[in-house]
Amino acid sequence: MRLVEIEDLVVSFRQFEGLVQAVRGVSFDLQSGESLGIVGESGSGKSVTCSALLRLLREPPATITAKKLVLGGQDMLRADKRALASIRGRVAAMVFQDPMTSLDPVFTIGHQIVETIVAHKRASKKEALARAIALLKRVEIKNAEAVVRYYPHQLSGGMLQRVMIAMALSCEPAVLVADEPTTALDVTIQAQILQLIKDIQAETGMGLIMITHDLGVIAETVDRVVVMYGGRVMETGPVEAIFAAPLHPYTRALLASIPGQQPGKQRLTEIPGSSPNPANPPSGCPFHPRCPIAEDACRVTTPLLETKATGRAAACIRVPAERVAA
């Protein structure tokens, strides 16, 4: 079953400079139980895409259009406020980048998990609290009975991110959207949180969308990858295939530029230039100003995301399609 269907999503923001398109025609979908990674740099539109999926952006200044924007079988573009509130947290739950600012500082941890449960399920406060404690235990918080009475400032970042995960799981969502869930955390804590997310996904069979700028996180956690750049999808495919043989020159350059892959002090392969400014994007392919194999046509035509091999697609006119392409 398809949990998420996004087709030709465009998100623009009314800003001082005029209308700025942060997402320019993104399409992908997510099957139930699948884990999908969306990788991109700042300004690639990866976070905006997922906020738009849950309709979390303030509209205006944001404007969302799409041929399809479906979450758990419901048309998110048509849903009214009440329908949206009932979908969020129940069909799809989110975990955000900075756990330190993700919780309301004046309410206890327990209160904030309980209110989530009560919003979606028929449960008494007492039942909800018992469930909150069970969830905190599931995310490996040892003194869960005490932690429900804590205020957010009394916990470390790593613990708070566990709380956020417990809260996201509280209504057994079909999809967990994790937006840079480990970026603000220390390396060792990051590894623990990623392992926890993977374990829970395996256990519950929920779908996972992992948004990150870190290819290492992608390599560790997901089945399928969407590579975004300049508000567009550059490449999609199974994670092993993408890391073994990236199709798009951007993906290739990105993988090559990761430091520390070989021992020894050395010069790194760098990508010249900088990411496009969404307010003033380049014509044609967004990557052409930095692309080593760009030709004249790349400056003019915007390449479409085309199937290049089984299960793999890339938006690049310089990448030939294999004969086996389905």
Partner: peptide, 12 residues
């Protein structure tokens, strides 16, 4: 522990 926690750039 620190070195072990670094994500490995190889999904296999």
């Amino acid at each position: 522990a620190l070195l072990d926690a670094v994500p490995v750039i190889d999904p296999t």
